[in-house]
Design a protein around this nucleic acid. Structure first.
Length: 213
DNA sequence: CGTTCGATGCACT
DNA sequence: GTGCATCGAACGT
């Protein structure tokens, strides 16, 4: 667990109302917290991806405004949660400003609180703690995030993102993963070498802190 | 170590 | 009917 350097502070809407790539890298080290009836679970964000506008072919807004993509066009600082592959919920933080469809997909967390609750929710409760929130589908499962939290206010709801003072070192940017278009830009940001980052073990080990900033 | 593939349900055309 | 911003088990090497 990284050293905590200050008391938790919930991120305000201003944090999200900025260029999406800035928000994406600044989210690394922040803490996603879900306070539910079942209890509290939280983890530090170690991997994220930016999806930016209707011209980004991998962004859900590439095909325009629909009922599903409506939250992307809404105010920044809200959650955009959707259901994928028939079994996984994925959570994004909406960025930019109203009318500009953009968001940051949260892909992996280092568990900090509620590890036992995460185990109860996960399909593989015996996995090492660091693997409980590795991958975008896994982290929503571990934190109990589903469509009920779509459009939730990330500054004032059961689902928040907070600054606990963690400041990971230099970050690495790579192409986004799991998509068939829009793989050119390096819009995935992560803590290099962190064992909670998604992907095969070889790739996680291969990352080194010198990679890039 | 690597790759392949089934599960599973919904939004959108 | 098609295609997913996935996961992990089951294989092959």
């Amino acid at each position: 667990m990284p050293d905590r350097q200050r008391k938790p502070a919930v991120l305000s809407h201003d944090f999200y109302e900025r260029p999406t790539l800035e928000v994406a890298c600044d989210l690394i080290g922040m803490v996603l917290v879900h306070d539910s009836g079942a209890g509290r679970a939280a983890g530090m964000i170690v991997e994220a991806e930016a999806y930016i506008g209707e011209t980004d072919p991998a962004c859900h807004a590439a095909r325009g405004l629909t009922r599903r993509t409506e939250p992307l066009y809404g105010p920044p600082g809200r959650a955009y949660v959707y259901f994928n592959y028939g079994m996984h919920y994925l959570v994004n933080a909406v960025t930019e400003r109203s009318g500009v469809p953009a968001a940051v997909l949260l892909r992996a967390l280092e568990p900090l609180e509620g590890v036992e609750l995460m185990r109860l929710r996960r399909a593989r409760p015996l996995a090492p703690a660091v693997a409980l929130c590795r991958g975008p589908g896994n982290l929503t499962r571990a934190l109990g995030i589903d469509l009920a939290l779509n459009r939730a206010d990330l500054s004032a709801s059961a689902l928040t993102i907070e600054d606990w003072g963690f400041r990971p070192g230099p970050l690495t940017w790579t192409p986004r993963v799991g998509i068939s278009v829009g793989t050119e830009p390096y819009w995935r940001v992560l803590v290099p070498g962190h064992s909670a980052v998604s992907g095969p073990p070889a790739r996680r080990r291969a990352a080194n802190p010198e990679a890039q900033g």
